[in-house]
């Protein structure tokens, strides 16, 4: 039995040439996914929750510097290192190309976080608390993760499910990618990005915006049709469903270069 309602596979393309490091995606993600508020303490303990984070790198020597940004979220790897190490199958790959974390199955061994090369899994060391006035801000479509649970980016699966429901319920339409496209199924970070640096779409849709990058990388012809496309830490063979497009620097630093 197919677990897919319609034939599709999600994928994301991040154009680093467009990313300005504004952190709108981070804020959108925090509020959409009921992520606890990151305090200074949590950062100092290296226990801050950021399902998507914008990493900043300096290029060159001060004052002749350039800032480089790269947003990093769960890469939803095809060969995910987090999946085989989970003793209770709390994380698995579903037919839609998503790496799913099942919160109520998780027992908190933290093996997955230790095996993840991208550092995008976060463990709830404490019961999450929100200020009293923010209790009603919580998104009811997302579970509030309790203590001892691993959590990570889900590509906003709740938004995809809501869009699917609306297609069937309000339009009584057949559920497929063209009808889905008319609905807002985009993850919170993608819809918040002011420069459209993030693109989320169906990989198998040949007319779609992300198909050509995945095709180019999967057929190993990156140099020709998608010269800027690459995957993060490609050499470990995780085969992520997120593709990055490298920044094109028209005016490179004279004596700079390399990551500072």
């Amino acid at each position: 039995m197919a677990d897919q309602r319609f034939d599709h596979k999600w994928g994301m393309v991040v154009d680093l040439d467009r990313c300005t490091g504004c952190q709108a995606c981070v804020v959108a993600c925090q509020s959409e996914n009921n992520i606890p508020i990151n305090t200074k303490d949590l950062f100092l303990q290296r226990r801050a929750y950021e399902w998507i984070r914008v990493e900043r790198y300096w290029e060159g020597e001060f004052p002749n510097v350039k800032a480089r940004f790269i947003p990093i979220m769960c890469q939803h790897c095809e060969n995910a290192p987090c999946e085989p190490v989970c003793p209770v199958y709390a994380t698995y790959h579903n037919d839609e190309g998503l790496n799913v974390q099942v919160y109520n199955r998780c027992v908190g061994t933290r093996y997955c976080a230790n095996n993840c090369p991208y550092q995008v899994r976060f463990f709830n060391y404490w019961e999450p608390v929100w200020p009293e006035r923010m209790r009603n801000h919580l998104n009811s479509d997302v579970t509030v993760r309790s203590r001892g649970i691993m959590e990570k980016c889900s590509f906003c699966i709740q938004r995809i499910r809501r869009a699917e429901l609306k297609v069937e319920q309000q339009e009584r339409a057949v559920l497929d990618y063209p009808t889905m496209k008319k609905r807002n199924f985009l993850p919170a970070c993608v819809s918040a990005c002011p420069t459209n640096a993030l693109t989320f779409a169906d990989q198998s849709d040949t007319t779609g915006p992300v198909n050509r990058y995945f095709k180019a990388l999967d057929d190993h012809e990156g140099g020709e049709s998608a010269p800027r496309a690459y995957r993060l830490i490609e050499e470990v063979g995780t085969k992520p469903n997120v593709i990055y497009l490298k920044k094109v620097d028209k005016y490179p630093l004279k004596n700079g270069g390399g990551h500072g």
Binding site: D3, N94, I157
Partner: peptide, 15 residues
């Protein structure tokens, strides 16, 4: 869900 051949993927019901 099995009887009626509808998806049984975790994310269908779990959020």
């Amino acid at each position: 869900h099995r009887e009626n051949s509808v998806p049984t993927d975790c994310t269908v019901c779990h959020k």
